Amino acid sequence: EFSMMFKHFDKDKSGRLNHQEFKSCLRSLGYDLPMVEEGEPDPEFEAILDTVDPNRDGHVSLQEYMAFMISRE
């Protein structure tokens, strides 16, 4: 189920989600993330990124995504 969600939000089929795609994916899974303006701080989402994209390369791989989802179950 999680990998299907990942593929759905991987719009460019790159095998990874940019942070915006990842945020959309989390919202569709029921995460209550506040709407913030582009460039505004988003501490809740930043905290999630610290876990799922610790190297802050700007992308979430399928492996990082799956590890995050399994840790939340």
Rank of each mutant, 00 (worst) to 15 (best):
E1H: 02
F2A: 11
F6L: 07
D10E: 08
K11M: 14
K11L: 03
D12S: 15
D12T: 08
D12H: 05
D12C: 10
K13T: 06
G15D: 08
L17T: 00
L17A: 00
N18W: 04
H19P: 03
F22T: 02
F22G: 01
F22R: 01
K23N: 04
K23R: 15
L26W: 00
L26I: 09
L26H: 00
R27F: 08
R27M: 13
S28I: 06
L29E: 04
L29Q: 14
L29G: 05
G30K: 06
Y31S: 04
Y31A: 07
D32H: 13
L33Q: 04
L33T: 07
L33N: 05
M35E: 15
M35N: 15
M35Y: 15
E37I: 08
E37L: 09
E37V: 11
E38C: 09
G39H: 06
E40S: 12
P41N: 13
P41A: 13
D42G: 03
D42W: 02
D42C: 11
D42Y: 01
P43C: 10
P43V: 10
F45Q: 00
F45A: 01
A47P: 06
I48A: 03
L49N: 02
L49A: 01
D50E: 09
D50S: 06
T51Q: 15
T51R: 14
V52D: 01
V52H: 02
P54I: 06
N55Q: 13
R56M: 06
D57P: 01
D57W: 08
D57Q: 15
G58I: 00
G58E: 01
V60F: 00
V60A: 02
V60N: 00
V60P: 01
V60Y: 01
S61P: 10
S61D: 11
Q63T: 10
Q63M: 08
Q63A: 13
Q63S: 14
Q63R: 12
Q63N: 10
E64I: 03
E64F: 01
M66R: 07
M66D: 09
M66I: 09
M69Y: 03
M69F: 12
M69E: 05
M69A: 09
S71Y: 02
R72K: 08
E73P: 15
E73M: 10
E73G: 15
